[in-house]
Design a binder for these strands. Structure first.
Lengths: 138, 138
DNA sequence: CCTTGACCTGGAGCGCGCACCAGGTAGTTC
DNA sequence: GAACTACCTGGTGCGCGCTCCAGGTCAAGG
């Protein structure tokens, strides 16, 4: 399963309502539901009235998802990664491969951005004489 | 036929044909025209038959555009930046401001990616025992 | 003369990742 | 008991940044 569930018994008061989840993760309600519908977040608990209840594990998992998304992993890749998680330990090698591949991609992104900084600094050199009005608004 | 086009014959006056521009910049024909139509690339020369002719300056400028785009500057911001350039020296302070702002954004991106590396490495720790089949083909 | 190929223009189409909306239910508040 | 709030489901819409397409021009080659 995707979300680590340490025990079968979960202390009820540690579960978060959707609104609390939004606060904790910074992810919107719509996006949380979207991720769940796409299989990125499985086994979300429900209250008696059908409302979702998120665990601390869900919070951590959403943070992982956002980290990967924000560094350029596509929904499709993320879905694949989650599917592998759902399929059990036999997929661990491939999950490791995916993480390693993404890791090197992130390193490339850092390199690309370092080069960008150099280019920007080069252009900024042409503005060395320009004083920026610190009082300027907006 | 995939026979290499006779690019050995460099176009006169060191101006580049659209196809040559694609080779030099890695940007597609459609995108080059799109950028021009959006005002990111002005005053592109034309041959007698109406075909575009790009200068070495155009090549350098496209590289700047791609650098900024690839680090998250939106088309709208890029358009604004180019408009300022077209308006002359009076806009230099704002152009500098934009570059500085984007510079700090890129630095934030690097920081975010460093944190991503930490998180990925943390997860990779759980796979320390996993051997990846190096022979695996794909 | 006919074909081929590079390029032209204007406009439509598209994939992604959400964001928004309508219509409904369950629990609390006055 | 009426309103209000929080949430539900299923579906549609949308902004961005290209990407593709139809239909045409022009020049060179066989």
């Amino acid at each position: 399963m995707v979300t680590p569930t340490p025990t079968s018994a979960v202390s009820a008061d540690s579960l978060l309502t959707p609104a609390e989840m939004v606060d904790r993760t910074g992810v919107t309600l719509d996006t949380l539901r979207y991720y769940e519908s796409e299989g990125l977040l499985s086994d979300v608990a429900r209250a008696a009235n059908g409302h979702r209840r998120y665990s601390e594990g869900d919070v951590r998992w959403i943070n992982v998802l956002r980290c990967l998304r924000d560094t350029g992993m596509s929904m499709a890749q993320l879905r694949h990664y989650c599917d592998l998680g759902d399929q059990g330990a036999v997929t661990r090698p491939e999950r490791k491969r995916i993480l390693l591949a993404h890791r090197s991609l992130v390193e490339q992104q850092i390199e690309e951005r370092r080069r960008a900084l150099d280019l920007i600094d080069g252009k900024l050199g042409a503005y060395a004489d320009v004083e920026i009005d610190v009082e300027e608004r907006s």
